[in-house]
Design a protein around this nucleic acid. Structure first.
Lengths: 210, 210, 210, 210
DNA sequence: CATGAATGAGTCTTCATTCAT
DNA sequence: AATGAATGAAGACTCATTCAT
């Protein structure tokens, strides 16, 4: 994990903002430099190229994410379902709190142009699947979970539902006339809705007999 | 619905291909022209601008989509759950068969730069919600569905799960060592998996008492 | 003098309008075609090229002008000063009534890119000088005009004053709060002002002893 | 008043040259760049756009002009007519010495497309009228000038005569077989002719009783 | 005779990057 | 270490004209 100076971090943050807003190709290094209040040449100087800047952003954000997940499941006091629920909340929390970055992530995943980023994303996915698989096997052994569970689909539902909810936030706000609700309150509302919804889904897949 | 000449359609198709692959801003009109085997100026000539080309693509694809949905639910022989299942299969079918277009759609939805496209998408979403809401009310009246159903979340799950599955296809293929499976067969496999998965989820939300 | 069909004349008229408004290079053949309600290819078809269209316009307008001047001075009942005054009024009338064309003419004269047009203009100027010189010599013989008269400067004053007045019309209207005066009335007003002004100037140069 | 670097000034000068020769729309930024010996992108880099380059040129030249006029009339030793004469000579000098710029100015005035330039020109005109009006009122108070004077027409005559003379220089040279006269000498000749001519005109309008 | 489709050269501008300092 | 100037390549788009029908 590289330690960035204030200026470097400022660039990174601005890049995240603009990439999320206008896409990688829709954002010029000049845009970033202007918005960040630094000279254009600084970007090449610090990050080598626009592409490497993007990769630096991914490394920075993904690094932080992975570290958080690690410790979460070592707890021995929680049951399997409880752990799954924690995982769900953790994911919701993470995505909703880092919406800008996740917008970039989803876009990049769709286009999958940059192989370096694809690899980062795939590694992350692999880890997640491994962890969840482990968890579920444990739950099956303890006979809390049913035998046939499609982990990949389950994850796709979690990730996809949260993503789709995130990109529809504006629409949701408009549709429910919540324009005046404070952002923080609205975020909490959505998170709670998501949490209940996905937990219900997962419980259905994992525990009920079809 | 405009009738396109062969050449115009060729451009439209190529644009879809490249936009899906490299994004709107990552694709130059020259790329499209070269790939489509036409002169660069033809694009401006036929579609006025790169942006209008994109919009033309959206109008073309969305027009076709909307027409299909319309007739689907007028059938009176099917029960509410059956209709929901038909809707799910229709959505899966549509997205998986038009992956390129849906990649563009998801990207645009994330970035939401072009207001004209946002409107098209929102209208589509509004229609879908209206249709499903109608369907569910009918099911509730007939006492097949439970009382409290969050339609928006349900749709987000359907759309999100399919989307997430689509963008993970490569990963999925690799993870399951299915590189040698013929594309058509693989597509059928994924569609079936998705169908079962989402139907299970929906049945749980709609019918089981929590 | 070529006889133009309705369509050809329509093009010619539209070209005059647009050349006067946006200059030759600022006007595209497509602009002209659209405004004239004809197909783009018609312009090349009828006039060979954009440049030839301009030349056709000049031939058409200049031809008409020359014809009018010709007969004006054969009258034997008018004295020399009276004839000069008629010439002044004729010039004012012509320029003010064909402002669009004269805008093009002045611009082309300033830039003098097209040699063919320069020649047309120079021929016209030569004729004017010849006629006036003749007139003045006659006046000098009759001892109505003083001996030393700079014909070229005199003409420059007439042409220049009218031109400068024409291009300043908008400013003039604004400066004198005449925005509400009907166009025809305003035109008459300006013409009268110009007429008196230039006649006064010419009388001073031609008759008074300095 | 911006201070331009050598390179920027070189571009400005070349632009003036080419705009005067081929008009604004007839001159491409590539023309300017090539002629000025700089990279094409430098023009956008320094001046933002071709249009802004034109405006920069106008600001530069008009700024210099206005500064000169300012001090001219504060002199208390000259009489009103003398001051008018100084003004005439100043105008002649200015236009003849900056022919290129004034060609552009006249063209722009004719087409009046760029509102920013129109404003600059109108302001200049307003100032001139104000100054001259002041001068003439003074002359009337001192009973050197007659009561009724049309200041606007007077200015139109001065400006128009000089302009018309300038654009006819080539013709004039040819007509009088002065092709061999050195440029400087020819310029002096024309300036003197113009000076005498316009002073005569103005004296007639201002002092003689009609 | 008249025209809609088509084109390649050209338009201005912006791009990410490099260079000299 | 940091930066303002500079650049060539590429961006989308418009141009006047031609050609097949």
């Amino acid at each position: 994990m590289i330690n960035y100076t204030d200026k470097q971090f400022q660039i990174l943050k601005t890049a995240e903002e603009l990439f999320a807003l206008k896409g990688f190709d829709g954002t010029s290094v000049r845009d970033i430099a202007d918005e960040a209040g630094v000279n254009v040449s600084m970007i090449s100087y610090y990050f080598r190229s626009k592409e490497k800047l993007m990769e630096a952003l991914f490394e920075y954000r993904m690094g932080h994410i992975i570290m958080r997940v690690e410790t979460l499941l070592k707890d021995n006091l929680m049951g399997p379902l409880q752990k799954v629920n924690v995982l769900i909340d953790d994911h919701i929390e993470r995505v909703m709190d880092r919406q800008k970055f996740y917008r970039i992530l989803f876009c990049e995943q769709i286009l999958n142009k940059n192989p370096m980023i694809i690899e980062i994303v795939n590694n992350y996915k692999k880890r997640n699947i491994a962890i969840i698989t482990e968890l579920i096997k444990d739950g099956q052994k303890k006979e809390v979970f049913k035998k046939k569970v499609d982990v990949v689909m389950m994850l796709n539902t979690m990730i996809g539902t949260v993503a789709q909810t995130m990109v529809s936030l504006d629409y949701y706000k408009d549709a429910h006339n919540l324009q005046d609700m404070p952002d923080a309150e609205f975020a909490t509302l959505v998170k709670r809705k998501l949490s209940i919804h996905i937990k219900t889904l997962f419980k259905a897949i994992l525990t009920y007999e079809a």
